[in-house]
């Protein structure tokens, strides 16, 4: 184990997989000489060279499309989109191509591409740089959606993503890069897709979260403890595949569920998770499933306004208390 940051954990995963498999290469804007806009690929160019750490022009559609083609040609591209906001320019290649190719060509083609992208708000970057868009990808069959919260999961899930054969949308939260945690140093440390983690056990309410909201959920659980409410916190870790069993098992115990996520409230991943809960555990619920999410507005620049838009630990606490 080593105590390293989320950023360093991702960097370690990339190094290990570059070492392990000659077919793995990194491609994206500023991944090489700049070291990545968020420094995730820092130092890799010097070790692996331009062939395997490739700076690209600002052409998101073709960065992803070339990754799709390279994957079909037998390589294992790890494409970095500077942020998910820019990834919208690549939606045609992600949704119409990467997600479809295996199925529509009768299972004869595979597209083992990993598309990494930072996302999320909280840094006063305004409406076009603060979005959390996991629901767009969760909606589309054929894509895996991976969204780690902890440094260990960032490493283990990225390694799993690189080693498997489906297109993966790997979403990192911009606020988490500096977060430190214990991370296994084992080269074969993998975190499987579709296994949620119970981070805190409790008996009164289940808080289902992913990405940065996992930390908000943990803070909320601490605050609730002082108020005599015992919250269980679940980190989904991957949205596709979605481990609803772990969530349902928890609700059987608590009878109440809050879904906390940073995407917009309307049509967000929380709506899907709430529906799955109703389908699988309606009889176990003592109250309607609650959502704590971003307000349905473009992100304002002003710090006070941005704070009001984003979900927080305080919001979770308030909702939990109302549910009791």
């Amino acid at each position: 184990m080593a105590r390293i940051s989320y950023r360093e954990a991702l960097n370690a995963a990339l190094r290990e997989e570059l070492d392990r498999d000659e077919r793995v290469f990194i491609m994206g804007e500023e991944v090489g000489y700049f070291g990545g806009a968020f420094k995730v690929t820092d130092g890799l160019l010097a070790v692996y060279g331009e062939k395997r750490v490739r700076d690209t022009p600002i052409s998101e559609l073709t960065i992803v499309g070339a990754g799709v083609g390279a994957a079909m040609g037998g390589l294992k591209p790890v494409v970095e989109l500077m942020t998910i906001n820019f990834g919208l320019l690549a939606m045609d290649q992600i949704v119409n191509h990467a997600a479809k190719i295996h199925y529509m060509f009768g299972g004869k083609a595979t597209v083992p591409i990993v598309i990494r992208a930072p996302q999320g708000g909280g840094h006063q970057l305004g409406a076009q740089h603060s979005q959390s868009l996991e629901a767009y990808f969760l909606h589309c069959p054929g894509l895996r959606v991976v969204i780690p919260a902890t440094p260990a999961d960032a490493k283990g899930l990225l390694k799993t993503a690189i080693r498997q054969t489906d297109p993966v949308i790997f979403l990192e939260h911009e606020s988490l890069y500096g977060v430190k945690g214990e991370v296994p140093e084992d080269n074969d440390f993998l975190v499987p897709f579709g296994q949620a983690a119970v981070l805190r056990e409790g008996k009164d309410v289940t808080i289902v979260a992913y990405s940065k909201c996992v930390y908000d959920a943990l803070s909320a659980a601490e605050a609730l403890e002082n108020a005599g409410i015992d919250a269980e916190v679940i980190d989904l870790r991957t949205l596709n595949p979605l481990d609803i069993q772990t969530v349902v098992a928890s609700i059987k115990k608590t009878g109440k569920a809050i879904v906390a996520y940073e995407g917009w409230r309307t049509g967000g991943a929380g709506a899907e998770i709430a529906s799955r809960i109703y389908e699988a555990a309606f009889d176990d619920l003592d109250a309607p499933v609650e959502r704590v999410a971003s307000l349905d507005t473009p992100m304002p620049y002003n710090a006070k306004l941005e704070h009001a838009v984003l979900p927080s630990a305080g919001d979770i606490v308030k909702v939990a208390e109302q549910m009791m």
Binding site: K51, T62, V64, A66, G69, A70, M72, L75, N96, H97
Partner: peptide
């Protein structure tokens, strides 16, 4: 590919895989 222009990035990527190998 049935999106107009959709094949060009993929062809570019296949070219990249050839050059890589």
């Amino acid at each position: 590919y049935a999106i107009v222009g959709g094949g060009l990035p993929i062809a570019t990527g296949l070219g990249l895989s050839v050059q890589y190998n």
